[in-house]
């Protein structure tokens, strides 16, 4: 679906000294520099894959998305998406992709969403009966039937996001790009959107490429993770192997009946995160030493509750950004 080799993109930026006189000076002479956003990026994505593009702000994720969808032109390197060169933007290519942008709306702001859907029906040349069927399915899945006739500017963010999803899926794209689809939504709405996308993907085998800052999105939707740091690929593999990048570890949360000695040697090797009052701690413990450590804790401290789960992907991400040498 996507083949990228040595893909790069540079942006030109200009610098201005702060303040009034800085503005005046920059009016006469400007200093420009090239800022590389993506550097020599290789990527292969096959049909039906669900891939999460991870990385901090400014890592180059959105730039990659924009190149994959043909919105911007790469500075160098080879790129083929669905057998097309994206920035040629052939009609066939555009018919087969969709991009959901959590921060932008493609719906017409001043009229009901239904009007926008009808327009999209024409743009994507969808038969009337097919259109009705798909629309009904989408609308009932997302439970938005009463909202179709409401002016978009009066919808809540969550409602609007559902409408955006419908707008992007009406033509059943083979390749779906999701750029922070759940940004700003409450937890319930986030979960709903996630479940919906997953269900949709299972049904139609859509290839999905996702960026998100919510690890729960990634955890729920992706089976493969590509980590981008400073425009370069730093990891590419299954989500399970991503989790075990930091070694095979478990995430343990312990709370106590009374404050305990936070300086004890038992905690030190396990990256302890203390609650201020010393009543609760979160630990990352290697599976190899899990049993003996747990036993030591139970023996030496007044444990009230003890819970253990695999390392949440958020902790992995957080840790990786601090210790990039692991990669």
């Amino acid at each position: 679906m996507i083949h990228a080799t040595a893909l790069s993109k540079n942006f030109r930026v200009y610098h201005k000294a702060p303040g009034f006189w800085g503005s005046v000076r920059s009016f006469w002479q400007r200093q420009y520099s090239d800022k590389p956003a993506v550097k020599a990026f290789d990527l292969e994505i096959g049909k039906g894959e669900r891939v999460g593009l991870l990385g901090p702000n400014g890592a180059g994720k959105t730039t990659l998305m924009k190149m994959f969808t043909g919105i911007i032109v790469p500075s160098s390197g080879q790129l083929s998406v669905l057998g097309h060169q994206p920035h040629a933007r052939s009609r066939d290519f555009r018919l087969r992709i969709a991009l959901v942008m959590g921060q932008k709306s493609q719906l017409w702001w001043d009229i009901p969403a239904m009007d926008s859907f009808v327009l999209l029906q024409r743009y994507y040349e969808i038969e009337e009966s097919t259109f009705r069927r798909r629309l009904n399915a989408l609308v009932s899945l997302l439970d938005v039937a009463p909202l179709l006739q409401v002016h978009v500017r009066k919808l809540s963010l969550g409602e609007r996001m559902k409408m955006e999803l419908i707008a992007c899926l009406l033509h059943q794209p083979e390749l779906l790009f999701l750029d922070e689809p759940t940004i700003g939504l409450d937890l319930v709405a986030q979960r709903k959107i996630r479940e919906f996308i997953l269900e949709w993907q299972r049904e139609y085998g859509t290839t999905v490429l996702l960026t998100s800052h919510y690890m729960a999105d990634v955890d729920a939707l992706c089976e493969r993770i590509v980590l981008v740091l400073n425009g370069q690929k730093r990891f590419d593999g299954g989500i399970r192997s991503f989790e075990s990048l930091l070694g095979r570890q478990k995430y343990v949360s312990v709370s106590f009946e009374q404050p305990v000695d936070t300086q004890s040697a038992v905690w030190q090797p396990h990256d302890p995160q203390w609650q201020a009052d010393g009543l609760q701690v979160e630990l990352r413990i290697d599976e190899a030493v899990l049993r003996e450590t747990a036993m030591a804790i139970f023996r030496d401290f007044p444990v009230q509750s003890f819970s253990m789960e695999k390392l949440p992907i958020e902790r992995v991400m957080h840790q990786l950004l601090q210790e990039t040498e692991v990669l």
Binding site: K16, S23, V24, F27
Partner: peptide
């Protein structure tokens, strides 16, 4: 005024 000046001067041709 400061902000408007800074903004205006950064778009030279427009100015």
């Amino acid at each position: 005024v400061n902000n408007c000046v800074a903004e205006a001067l950064s778009y030279r041709l427009h100015f």
